[in-house]
């Protein structure tokens, strides 16, 4: 069971990820609705995995990944992207994000990705 921090500015998406993740027995320890909040919550909660939306107010998901990687280089961050954001996903991966999932979320894909990240930390 992993402790997950969910970051997305849409509560719709946060709930959806929460439902998918909790159904698999993981625990959502926190939610963040912008790029600043996710960094703060990351510091406070030390989650096992962060699901990170790219487009968020205040600070983008990409910038948030960069900050989190500076704070904790072995942090496990999974980017949540939409079609057409390939180059942004690449930027996030270069910055240290471990993997990505694509909206609209398919529960199996979300779980498989989180599982993969948890099993093979670099």
């Amino acid at each position: 069971m992993a402790r997950v921090l969910v970051a997305d500015d849409a509560s719709f998406m946060r709930q959806m990820i929460r439902e998918i993740v909790e159904a698999e027995g993981h625990e959502v320890v926190g939610e963040a609705s912008d790029g600043d909040e996710v960094v703060e919550e990351f510091k406070r909660l030390s989650p096992d995995v962060v699901t990170m939306d790219i487009v968020m107010p205040r600070r983008s998901g990409i910038d948030a990944v960069k900050t989190i990687m500076e704070l904790q280089p072995d942090a496990q961050v999974v980017m949540c992207s939409a079609l057409g954001q390939e180059s942004l996903v690449q930027e996030a991966m270069d910055a240290g994000a471990r993997d990505f999932i694509v909206k609209p979320f398919k529960p199996d894909a979300v779980i498989a990705t989180i599982q993969k990240v948890l099993e093979k930390p670099e």
Binding site: F12, K103, P104, F105
Partner: peptide, 15 residues
């Protein structure tokens, strides 16, 4: 703001 809002609506609608 417009970009983020449109993006967010797109994501929800697609889901």
């Amino acid at each position: 703001t417009l970009f983020r809002m449109a993006h967010s609506i797109k994501g929800m609608a697609a889901s």
